[in-house]
Nucleic acid binder design. Sequence first.
DNA 1: AGCGCGTGTCATCAA
DNA 2: TCTTGATGACACGCG
Length: 662
Amino acid sequence: MKYLKPWWSDGGGLLHLTILLSLAELHLDLDLDLYLLLPPPTRLWDELLLASGPTSSAYALSPFPASGVWGRADQLHPKGREPDPAAESAGRLLREVRALGVPFIPRTRVDAWLVHSVAAGDADGAHGLLGAAAASSAGGVGASVDDSSQAAPGDGGDPRAAASSPLDAGEEEKAPAEPTAQVLDAAASQENEVLGERHQEVGHSSQNKENEQRVSAQEKKLQHKNEDAHEAADKPDWEAEKTTESRNEGLLLGDTPPVSINDGMNSTHNVNFSQAISHDVNLHEAMLLCPDNTFRRDPVARTSQPPQEPFLHLNSHTNSEQTLPGTNWTGFLPLVGNQIHLTSEDLLHDLDINIFDEISLMSLATEEGFDPMEVPQLFQEPDSDSGLSLNSSHNSTSVTKSNSSHSMCEGGATGSSSDLESLSHHDLEGAVGGYYPEPNKLCHVDHRSDSGFHGDLAFQHLFHNHTYHLQPSGLESTSNSFSQYGKSQKIQGRCLNDTDRNLSRDERRAKALHIPFSVDEIVRMPVESFNNMLSRHYLTDLQMSLIRDIRRRGKNKVAAQNCRKRKLDIILNLEDDVCNLQAKKEILKRERAQYNKAINILKQKLHNLYRDIFSRLRDDEGRPVNPNQYTLQCSQDGSVLIVPKELMAPGHRKENQKGKTK
DNA sequence: AGCGCGTGTCATCAA
DNA sequence: TCTTGATGACACGCG
């Protein structure tokens, strides 16, 4: 949501009719919101907002002079947050507003949001807007607009107004019912019997007094809502989208007839609304009014862009005839229709690139002439059987984009059997201006129509051995084809220029198919965000397949890298373990040798001690004791006994022998 | 030409 | 059922 400068704030009385362009709609189902700004102090306006807030879908910009913030009525009055006095006061206030000639144009859905500014120096333009607003607000007191089409039967609309413009009423009957007007008028009809005539009797001054009293009681609420407006303005785009989606549809602007207006000063002007809108529309100024500076783009890039088809013409999803019906625009807004076309084109140039990131692929494709639905019209060539030229040499657009890469690829392509990437770069992107031919179409391309271009041979080789030749399914064939043509990179390197050579294969593929996300985004994005992103963009099956393949391959690549790294780490760790264990083994060996050596020393010492003892022992007859016949036994009390070996029990002897051995 | 290594990719399984 | 990680196997490029 863009908040624009009040039209009076420049002191020059500049009226900015703001038709906000939002390309956030995923499939370029564009919404056109038409707002008219009211001159402050407009307490009545605030009341109108309060009254028409959450339930009436009164789309209007509310002035908050204290903060300078503008808010949209539906944002200023979130549902469920404020008591809704609409049922009681909407109709009455609406009539008061109408009696003052307050312009009130509800949200208008014409599948385009535009930003316009209208120089209010032109009284006709300003008054025309006011009158148109009054017209769409369905005829209050003092408004000389026929509101019979919008007012419910028995609504009690101003009969004078009804009589003032019967022709307009007839045209407006064809217009679809406008929710805002319906709600407001429904509320108005409830009080019509009571209040309808009173508004004609009561002057504006008395109404303003009542309004002042009401407004003073509601100022705090407005301040609170002002904060809400700030919050709404700070919402991220995806939240803004929700808000946008939550809005109901409104009156088709194109169906609004020329109106005779009441400017609020008891003077009536017959002004064509289209003239009002088309007066001195200053897009640049309107963009400057956007505080978030969303509408900016490199002017150089803009000037470098070749003349393009009107934006809406390139939108396959949004039929220009439907969304911006030329008859409607030219009928009620003949100049507006043209203006919107031009402005849309300008906006395509001037929009911030970030906006383009948020819009669907179709918009991106539109900028580059990429539109599968439009390609047969845009790139059809008389000598092409399929109506689709795959030969860049015949396409001026492709020549400017891909001639260099073509020249580089010619040599390699002839030897390539499975390099669709080179195709996607040179013939998909370049030859058809970004359009990717479907594989089955490619398989049936009549290359004979080309005269000696190497690309023909290249194509024949490129698709010579591809599995998708045999598979009717585009998805499967796509996956297979992509998996196949990734295996021939030698030729690929020769075909690609330096810039493309630095890109990964998937990046080049994504570029070739004009996928509006980076490979890094596709791979690293959490699955929830990833699915959300996919759902927010219009993508063909081919693009979806490629995106999912890119994501799968990217994640698997990372997984493989991690796996190999992990495996390498495991191997290194095992090698370290082996080294450590070998070192420990050596240490244990040395310790064992040392212990054995010590044991041997002890054994030797014990043996010496044994001999020494027996050499000194004598029996009863004074003879030396034979150590082979006797042995030494240590009793538990510490005494040492000389025991004949024959007297020792076998078990005991064995233990003794073991002890000796040890 | 053959070999080893690194890397990407696919298929498969398990969580 | 889908997603993701892990991993074996294979193909390819490169030195």
